[in-house]
Amino acid sequence: MSGEKKYYAPLTPSIIIEFDPNVCDGCYPTFREPLCVKACRMDILLPNPYDRSKPPILIYPDECCECGCCVHACPKSLQGAIKLNWPTHKLPRWKRKETGEHFRVGMPNPPPPNPTPPVGGWYPEVKRREER
């Protein structure tokens, strides 16, 4: 019943997951599938069906659970190959203590990025110790 039948996925014009085509190479040819696709917990990223070295394609953006595993798994995450854009209605907000100014993620004219890395770095090394 399947053989000749073609299957499609409808797309929605949403950029909850956004790729920079100048940075993302679809993990080609280093990995068998793009690591964001491998990591996606809802399986809503498809390897680019037309050119594997181009960014993956987002299907069913409404299913995104915002876990950010795709960004975390990306070998070029720190170069901005992939972004998770939280939905507009859920953008975190903050207030600067000294000045009382209000900010939110994704605002026009944002403050400069804070370059401080996490404690232990963005990707602490995971290395097995042989003694057991």
Binding site: C67, G68, R93, K95, K97, M107, N114, P118, G120
Partner: peptide, 26 residues
């Protein structure tokens, strides 16, 4: 930043300019 699931929170907030030394998150 490091517990795993919220790595993206640190990533997104610091890129958007949030500074824990100065800012109070709502």
């Amino acid at each position: 930043a490091q517990e795993g699931k919220t790595w993206i929170v640190y990533y997104n907030l610091t890129r958007a300019g949030f500074d824990p030394n100065k800012d109070m998150l709502q």
